[in-house]
Amino acid sequence: MEYGTIEREIHIDASPEVVYEVITKPEHIAAWWGFDLQVPASAGATGRMTRPRRDGSGTLVVPLAVVEAEAPRRFAFRWAHPDGRPATPQNSFLVTFHLAPSGEGTVLRLTEAGFREVGWEAARLEAYHRDHSAGWDEHLGALGAYAAGLVRA
């Protein structure tokens, strides 16, 4: 396996407008992803996401840089880059959400790229790719259920 890109596609029973809000607004992100977000959803914005570490050893702080914000069709950001340095293709992962209307719902396509570009040794690359793959499987399911729940509420 190459461990270069993660791709997922799900159908969500909510409009692209609702789904876009769910993937960009702090109060929604906390509900399906568990991160507190401190960055506006506008291209060029930088900030961070935080959440308690799973092992209980404090707070995980993840720098984030918004690359694209085209409501309600596309949202992309770079993350996991070193604190204090701008995110680049050589030091971060690029996550892109592409939203397309589908009947009364939305097809969400997620791509996370950049694993090979960070230059890690094979074992570290494989571990991060596996962790992020499992994470997106879990969190996209939660995102879909959460967004659909907003429509039903």
Results as ranks from 00 to 15, higher is better:
A147K: 05
F115P: 00
G135M: 03
R51D: 01
H28F: 02
W79G: 08
G84I: 02
R73H: 14
N91A: 03
D131F: 13
G47I: 14
T111E: 15
L150C: 04
D83G: 12
R130N: 01
H139S: 03
A113H: 11
G135Y: 11
G44K: 00
F77Q: 02
F35N: 10
A127Y: 05
R8T: 13
E112P: 02
A142N: 15
L125S: 07
W79A: 06
R124I: 04
P72M: 09
D55L: 01
H11Y: 15
G56W: 12
R54H: 08
A122W: 03
V61N: 02
R109D: 07
R48T: 00
Y3T: 04
R51N: 06
P40T: 12
A122C: 05
P89Y: 15
E27W: 04
L125V: 02
R109W: 04
W136C: 06
V22T: 08
S92G: 02
V151A: 12
G119H: 07
F115L: 01
I12L: 04
L64F: 06
G58H: 13
D83M: 09
R51H: 03
T88K: 07
G149H: 11
G114C: 11
E70H: 15
R8G: 12
A43H: 08
V67A: 00
L110V: 14
P86R: 05
N91F: 08
P63V: 06
F35I: 03
A41S: 10
E126W: 00
V118E: 07
V39Y: 09
A45Q: 03
G4W: 03
W79Q: 01
G135P: 11
P86K: 13
G105N: 04
E21M: 01
L110G: 11
R54S: 10
R8M: 05
V61P: 03
P82V: 08
V151L: 05
H132L: 15
W120R: 04
H132W: 13
F35H: 01
E138R: 05
W120Y: 13
R53A: 13
R116W: 10
P52H: 12
P82T: 06
V118P: 07
H81W: 05
A100R: 14
V39I: 06
T59W: 05
W136Y: 08
R73F: 08
D83R: 14
P89W: 15
A147V: 10
T5N: 12
T50Q: 01
T96V: 12
E138W: 02
G58L: 13
E70A: 15
G119Y: 06
L64N: 04
H28M: 06
R109I: 09
V95N: 05
Y20G: 05
T5F: 09
F93M: 14
P40A: 08
Q90C: 03
A113V: 07
S102V: 09
D137Q: 10
A41H: 09
V22M: 06
R124F: 12
K25W: 11
L99Y: 06
A71D: 02
L60K: 09
E27K: 12
V62R: 11
D36G: 01
E104Y: 10
D36S: 01
T96N: 06
M1T: 09
G44V: 05
W33D: 04
E2W: 11
R74W: 09
Y3P: 08
T50H: 06
R124N: 07
G144Q: 00
H129D: 02
A147C: 04
S42W: 10
